[in-house]
Nucleic acid binder design. Structure first.
Lengths: 137, 137
DNA sequence: GTGATTGCAAATCTTTTGCACTAAA
DNA sequence: TTTAGTGCAAAAGATTTGCAATCAC
């Protein structure tokens, strides 16, 4: 039985045609960062008939099932990341490009304790960069 | 001459009625985190006639002028922070509340070097927390 | 006066929703 | 069958824009 199908079953999601196809696009390559719009475009390009609404649903379901996570770096656009390991990000403000930084490379020492009654969910480190605009020769 | 007016002049913004009033709301108290919608509400409550569009413009102008900065923690909503010092944030996913963490309290060691040709703009550390939902006694 | 700024309403963009239709089990 | 999942188009939010009216200098 296809790996993707099992993977979906394990997290309680019916392996529908759309979910399987999107999962393949997402997880078959290496780690990826996509927006819903992008993934929808890829699906269409790959002749997978799926609506944008379903892409949104699917991304959120995958995220809820911990198959991926959401990265918020820009107002008004969400990125979904297929890497669920502990890690951080470079975000290029010029290009909108996201790049993983392995968790071990960033040492966040001495977290202040959270306000009373609150539990830490996750620590996001976003290194915002900008491309030098020296004209390329 | 009023301090706010000078402050706006120094960054090249005409001290219009709306800008001065918004600046007072923003900078007269301590450090603040507001959304455009919130600030607009406060302005109206304070009998300051200003449109939402102008609030957006003003927040972006203040941000461009380094009087404040934008904090992106949730898809679909921008917070503006009157604290321009080097610092980080707690973000409570239950309440949408932001709280500053002084920069010194978070030691981010050993930044990986950014991709070639890119310059670090800023490092954002967001500690996502969630309120325990133990019923309060 | 003159050019910057504002207000309004319409437009835009991303994301969500309602509901009839389709498909997995 | 039965219930979950999908597609479409409409709705919902947040934010931006175009342009005439208004204000600071």
């Amino acid at each position: 039985m296809p790996i993707v199908v099992e993977r979906l079953r394990r997290v309680g999601l019916r392996p529908t045609r759309q979910r399987v196809a999107l999962a393949r696009l997402l997880f078959d390559g290496g780690d990826r960062h996509v927006t819903a719009e992008q993934l929808h475009g890829e699906a269409l390009a790959a002749a997978i008939r799926v609506s944008l609404a379903t892409v949104y649903n699917t991304l959120h379901q995958f995220t809820a099932a911990s198959l991926m996570r959401e990265v918020v770096v820009e107002p008004g656009r969400s990125y979904f990341d297929t890497n669920t390991d502990d890690h951080h990000h470079f975000f290029c403000e010029s290009t909108g490009h996201l790049q993983d930084i392995p968790g071990e490379l960033v040492r966040v020492g001495e977290l202040p304790r959270p306000p009373a009654g609150a539990k830490i969910q996750r620590v996001d480190v976003i290194i915002r960069i900008r491309q030098d605009n020296r004209a390329p020769r």
